[in-house]
Design a protein around this nucleic acid. Structure first.
Lengths: 163, 163
DNA sequence: CTTGGAATGTCAACATGACTGACTTAATGT
DNA sequence: ACATTAAGTCAGTCATGTTGACATTCCAAG
């Protein structure tokens, strides 16, 4: 810590600055979810369905346990969401080859379509924010978010970019 | 937009970059709420109570309508939370002086104590993230979050710093 | 080979915190 | 006097989280 700045340059760590960051996070998260929420409202799905579709689309063939770790809910809770998605033909669940206890999850064509629609809306919102703030701000944004994750989730987050 | 950068310097707007930002936001939000959530779990309150305490503590004397606008929930939903907080002696509701229809909200001493406990935990988490990322990153973080808010909420957010 | 434990997934019941809609009460303002 | 506004309430619904109990499958130790 000997190379930490001192005095006024630590202003970003005052309680007031931290509080503003907390409130910014709260308000921004609402904007973050507003676009997909609006789409979901029409079709009697919720955020939980969106999250499942997102991560299944991101890593096709993922088994339920891994999805559980990513979403951080109980398997019973995920199962309800997953069941409706499978019943509605948006997600396909294939029994594992090596281990028949496992179910591997895939988006159907219809599932892909909805996922794309939701993602496009959310990306459009993020794109506008990124554009407004500029590339340097985006770099800082990503750094703070990553530092804010719980260690286990940070590993999962990084893992998504590798395999 | 004639002064926007072009070519490779727009890499931060690719779909992949945006997707990573979206996932970062999702994972970070869990870290963001984890510390207060742990405290709340013990005392049969939820995030909704924390949010109410936070904003009442932030702007003592605020009336119900304003709190409603900030939280973005229905009055029925807020009322349930507020009623328990008042019954439990954490929040005081005073009839307005100028307009007797209004109720102005204040934290009691006990309410202040809990709010401080929750806020301290959350601030400690944010402080660690800020320190890790550094002041420049924090500036960018705040800029992107502000750009991400819905316009109406951005006004409310800014308004909290004035009066 | 069998059997018992661990891993995986499913079903049922319940809690919380959102929502809508209809309504009351009281105070305000035109 | 009457319409509007602020706050609160009652009733019902929905999405999404929770525990607990259970079935199936796999693997490894006896």
């Amino acid at each position: 810590m000997s190379d930490m700045p001192t005095g006024d340059s630590l202003l970003f760590l005052t309680d007031e600055q931290l509080r503003q960051g907390i409130e910014a996070m709260f308000f921004a998260y609402r904007g973050f979810t507003s676009a997909p929420d609006q789409i979901l409202a029409g079709i009697s799905y919720g955020r939980a369905h969106h999250r499942a579709l997102h991560f299944i689309g991101r890593s096709p063939g993922m088994n339920v346990n891994r999805l559980l770790a990513i979403l951080g809910v109980t398997k019973q809770s995920l199962n309800r969401v997953l069941r409706t998605l499978i019943e509605d033909g948006l997600v396909e669940s294939r029994v594992g080859v090596a281990d028949k206890r496992e179910r591997h999850l895939y988006l159907t064509e219809e599932g892909q379509t909805l996922e794309t629609r939701l993602s496009e809306a959310q990306r459009a919102w993020m794109r506008a924010a990124y554009r407004k703030a500029g590339p340097d701000a985006v770099t800082g944004f990503r750094q703070v978010l990553e530092a804010m994750m719980e260690p286990e989730l940070r590993r999962l987050y990084s893992g998504l970019r590798e395999g």
